[in-house]
Structures are given as C-alpha cells and as structure tokens.
Amino acid sequence: MITKIGQIMLYVTNQQEAVDFWTKKVGFIIVAEENGQGMRWIEIAPSKDAETSIVLHNKEVIAKMSPELNLSTPSLMFTTENLDKLYNDLANQRVTVGEIMEMPTGRVFNFADSEQNYFAVVEKSN
C-alpha cells in the first residue's frame, strides 16, 4: 500500500537556474544533491522535514537515458497559510504571478518558474 508521495521529478533545461529560482525566490532548501555517473540531480523541499520533495533533473540527460519517459512539467498545487504574503514576496522578486482568484477550495494564484512552467498555490490554514 502506498502511504505518501515521496518525491516529484521535475525535468528542467537549466538545473542551476531552477535551483536558484526555487531556493532564492520561492524559499525552498536543498535537501540533497548527487552528481555521479554523468547525472546530476538536486532534491529541494519547502523545509527539512517536508514529506514530499522535488527532484530537479536535467531534461536533456534524462531524455537520452530514457527516451520513453514523459518529460512534461507536472501540474503541481502547493499550499500556504498566508497567500497574500507569498503572492507579494514572489511579485516583489519579479516572479510572474497570476491574479488571486476565489475558488471553492480557497483563494488561489499561479506563478511561473524561470522556464515558464506554471504552478498553483492555494491558501489553507492548519
């Protein structure tokens, strides 16, 4: 039985740009980094104790190793307790953000990474 999602693979064109975006603009931390056998991957997460992390892989390297894989960007929905603060923090760092919308699940907005992949954030309180 599956009990949780451990890692999400995110295939990027420029790993260093992706690391900079997620750590410097979004506030994630680097959990682990491996560089061996011609392959580098960087594991990032919102915090050290996060249950789910994102692993940044080089899209070109993975395509050569496993051409059958779907390397499209997954549609991810993040949560925050303070949507307005996160929205303003990202906008102040010149991150492309969509307008805040009211949805049945709560207030939501989307943002784009440095490769113009869009992700969503919903406000939820604990």
Rank of each mutant, 00 (worst) to 15 (best):
P67N: 09
K59V: 09
T80W: 00
E81R: 11
M77A: 08
H57C: 06
I30T: 14
K24N: 15
K25C: 02
A45F: 03
A32T: 08
L86C: 10
M39R: 12
Q37D: 15
A32K: 14
W41M: 10
L86D: 11
S47A: 15
S66H: 11
K48N: 09
H57A: 06
M65A: 13
V31C: 04
F21Y: 13
L76N: 07
M77F: 10
L83H: 05
V55K: 01
N35A: 08
D49G: 00
G38S: 07
E43M: 12
T79K: 09
G27Y: 03
I29V: 15
T52A: 06
K85Q: 14
L86I: 15
P46G: 12
K25M: 11
E43G: 01
S47C: 09
R40I: 04
V61M: 04
S53W: 01
T52I: 12
K24A: 13
S53L: 04
E43V: 14
T79H: 04
F28C: 05
G36V: 01
E60Y: 00
L71I: 11
M77N: 11
L56K: 05
E60H: 06
S66A: 13
T73V: 12
K24E: 15
G36Q: 12
V31H: 03
I42G: 03
K59N: 05
L76H: 02
I42M: 02
S66I: 09
E60S: 12
K25D: 11
G38L: 05
R40S: 08
S75H: 13
H57R: 03
N82E: 15
W22Q: 05
E43I: 10
I54F: 03
Y87D: 06
A45N: 03
K85W: 00
K24G: 08
V26K: 02
T79P: 02
F21P: 07
F21A: 11
G27V: 06
N35E: 10
P46D: 11
A50F: 02
I42Q: 02
Y87I: 09
M39S: 12
K64W: 03
I54K: 02
F78V: 10
P74V: 06
W41I: 06
N70L: 05
Y87W: 14
K85D: 14
F78L: 14
I30F: 01
K59Y: 00
L56F: 07
T73C: 15
A45D: 08
L56R: 04
E51K: 09
S75K: 08
L83P: 02
Q37T: 07
G27S: 10
V55A: 07
E34P: 00
L69K: 08
F28Q: 06
M77L: 15
E68R: 09
K25L: 13
L69S: 01
T80A: 09
K48D: 05
L71G: 08
K85N: 13
R40L: 05
